[in-house]
Design a protein around this nucleic acid. Sequence first.
DNA 1: CGCTTGCTTGGAGTGCACTCCAACTCTCTA
DNA 2: TAGAGAGTTGGAGTGCACTCCAAGCAAGCG
Lengths: 152, 152
Amino acid sequence: MTVMDSPPTEPSVCLEPGRQRGRRPEGRDRFTISEVAAYTGLSAHTLRWYERIGLMPHVDRSHTGQRRYTSRDLDWLDLVGRLRLTGMPVADMVRYAELVRQGEETFAERERLLSAHRDDVRRRIAELRSTLDVLDYKIEIYSDARRASERA
Amino acid sequence: MTVMDSPPTEPSVCLEPGRQRGRRPEGRDRFTISEVAAYTGLSAHTLRWYERIGLMPHVDRSHTGQRRYTSRDLDWLDLVGRLRLTGMPVADMVRYAELVRQGEETFAERERLLSAHRDDVRRRIAELRSTLDVLDYKIEIYSDARRASERA
DNA sequence: CGCTTGCTTGGAGTGCACTCCAACTCTCTA
DNA sequence: TAGAGAGTTGGAGTGCACTCCAAGCAAGCG
């Protein structure tokens, strides 16, 4: 409805290779649901469901009523996919989508919402890291035991 | 049933402060379920459920049948809580618990299981980090806009 | 033209990880 | 010894995020 606030296709900040199923189709700007599914790794079911719950900013339709996604939609799905993979609840993503629809006067609240999620992500990185230490410790115990029994 | 394979109460590798609800009770070695719930942050319901599904190595009982957890159990729950917080499925944790019950001949498979999880954790750290970049980028856009409108 | 494959819908179903309930019994403090 | 507040069980219920189904329309190909 209003201007979308994504970085205009930034290849530097990109899902690491192997994470996404398809390369982004270039040229056209009216992708079918299965093309988008292949690109995002989300199922067509999930894409329709996202639309139903208000997580998509109105997807265009062909003359026969089939969905046609724009590359702007793909940008949005990139962000949504990222937020999802980093554990943001769907309800919060829907809230964010509403704010985007409402326009510029919601910038402050969008900032709060993303900042809260960023704090969350930072906490989880710390959590994962400290678990990594425990895993290293235990794995070493097991592999020491294995090497010892192989030598015996 | 067999020897537990946890580092013997290592205070250096510890849940970051604020994460765990209670400080570990010292001295005694027969904790009630609510003490354990307060310590681990898991609910008593969940502790009973973990036992039902085979995620606990047989908890001792009082003469009237109430659960009495040892500090060895707390060590185990520390590990389980960590694996849980880092996204290991309950089914995998049950599998690991079975391997521990079976004794030393399962060291190699335990190592495989934990190594697979470690790879997973590493992947997720990378994922979180790359999302952090995107969040920083967008938050900066919003706060720039806010500061600009405040100056205007 | 018929076949295969893909897209549409609302609503129902699934899997995971809890979470709660009813109907008790046990423990602790006054 | 009475009462409050713990603890016990099996089984049912919840919330989240999909995931699938049935029934039908649409598009490309030999």
